[in-house]
């Protein structure tokens, strides 16, 4: 009999997700409901097959019915923990992804991988890290949500309110002074720094930096520092960061860091004659073209230069948000 089969199949589907001890009780309850509702339709004149079919349609998805009957939530993470989950996941991604990218690129560079290989591998690593972070965080929260019965495990208090941002003008002045001081220190280092490095064995003077490179690099960097000074002054006059300033700072950071990193990575920044006379036996290999220490230093130069436009970007976004609020 097809009707009996349909009902039996429904009862089986609705009770299979329920723990064994409650299964029989639930099965009998649903069977009673189906039979009563079918009888009502039969009395109204339906034929048996149509009545049973209509009743089952009314009951709906058996898994949803079982969840409603046993008060089980039909969501992975309920409203009690959703916001906490989202906040934590964003924070984790913001911290772990850059760290993983930097660590991976560093390891590959030390291994001597090509640029293309590093970029290709980096994409795979970032996708994997993202998937793992999202999966495990979600899993832990889903378990917490089930165990806590949908009640929040962390109470919100007013102490968690974000601090209001500093008056921007004041902060801009602090930034401006700090940056001008840094530019002056950098200029002084470029002008007199190399001459302050003592000769390794006290004999005739051997320049620390490769003279052929330093001859153009020092003037190039000094010229750029002048542009930096101009940039900070214009920014301070303007009063707040904008995305235009972020773009200019990105170009300036690139123009500053890339030549330095490039000469480091190709082994043309330090003077091999100087390195050979130091007590460090494999200094020439380590700091020469493709040397491990040279690669690490080059990467550090790029990373520290990237901080600057990133900082600008954060401040520009904040300035835009504050402007929108006012």
């Amino acid at each position: 009999m097809t009707n009996a089969t349909l009902t039996d199949r429904y009862l089986f589907a609705a009770t299979r997700s329920v723990p064994e001890p409650q299964r029989e009780e639930l099965r009998r309850e649903i069977a009673e409901r189906i039979a009563d509702a079918t009888d009502a339709r039969l009395q109204a004149g339906d034929d048996r097959e149509a009545a049973e079919h209509a009743v089952l349609v009314e009951l709906g998805d058996p898994d949803a019915l079982a969840a409603a009957y046993s008060d089980r939530p039909l969501q992975l993470i309920g409203p009690a923990h959703y916001l906490l989950w989202r906040r934590l996941l964003k924070l984790l991604l913001a911290i772990v992804l850059p760290a993983a990218a930097f660590g991976y690129a560093l390891a590959q560079m030390i291994d001597g991988a090509s640029f293309g290989d590093i970029i290709g591998g980096l994409v795979v690593v970032l996708i994997m890290v993202t998937v793992h972070l999202a999966f495990w965080t979600t899993l832990v929260f889903a378990i917490i949500d089930r165990l806590s019965g949908g009640r929040s495990v962390l109470e919100w208090t007013p102490d968690q309110l974000p601090a209001l941002t500093e008056p921007p003008r004041n902060q801009m002045l602090v930034d401006y002074v700090a940056n001008v001081v840094m530019v002056v220190i950098a200029a002084a280092l470029i002008l007199v720094g190399p001459r302050l490095v003592p000769s390794p064995d006290g004999g005739e003077s051997v320049p620390f930096l490769e003279p052929a490179t330093w001859a153009w690099l020092s003037w190039y960097l000094l010229a750029l520092l002048a542009v930096h000074l101009l940039f900070w002054t214009v920014l301070f006059r303007h009063g707040r960061w904008s995305y235009g300033f972020v773009l200019v700072s990105l170009l300036l950071a690139t123009a500053t860091a890339v030549p330095v990193a490039w000469t480091l990575a190709t082994g043309t920044l330090f003077n091999p004659a100087y390195l050979a006379r130091t007590g460090w036996t494999d200094a020439v290999e380590q700091l020469g073209s493709g040397g491990a220490v040279a690669s690490v230093l080059a990467l550090l130069v790029l990373a520290s230069a990237a901080v600057w436009p990133l900082d600008g970007f954060v401040k520009a976004r904040r300035a835009r948000r504050d402007a929108a609020v006012v």
Binding site: E29, R33, A37, G60, L65, A68, Y69, D71
Partner: peptide
């Protein structure tokens, strides 16, 4: 609705 009443009876019993 029947879909409201039957689960409600179970909850009241629980």
């Amino acid at each position: 609705d029947a879909n409201t009443l039957y689960p409600l009876l179970r909850r009241l019993e629980k």
